[in-house]
């Protein structure tokens, strides 16, 4: 059911969306993204959590590890 990462990468651009007000700033996405797509920003959400920010969307291969590890449903990866 999960096609290889390379194949996914070939498919084209990935869209990374962060639902800011769901994020609780646990930074799991920042730590565990194999390609280090995220970094901590100095932007706070409504609840006072520092949000992750995407450094370079082109790095993303759309593996969805961050989406699935996220305890908050706050990350959406779309393989376009």
């Amino acid at each position: 059911m999960y096609t290889s990462l390379l194949e996914r990468h070939r498919r084209g651009r990935k869209l990374i969306e962060i639902t800011e007000n769901l994020c609780k700033g646990c930074e799991i996405c920042i730590e565990f993204c194999p390609l280090k797509v995220f970094e901590k920003s100095d932007k706070l959400n409504r609840k006072g959590y520092y949000l992750p920010v995407v450094t370079d969307e082109d790095l993303c291969v759309g593996c969805r590890l961050c989406e699935l590890l996220c305890p908050e449903f706050a990350i959406i990866i779309t393989n376009e």
């Binding site: 609780k24 646990c26 799991i28 959590y49 699935l68 590890l69 996220c70 305890p71 908050e72 449903f73």
Partner: peptide
Amino acid sequence: CSGCGCGTVLN
């Protein structure tokens, strides 16, 4: 809580 595993299990 922030970083709790329960959210990941729900996911």
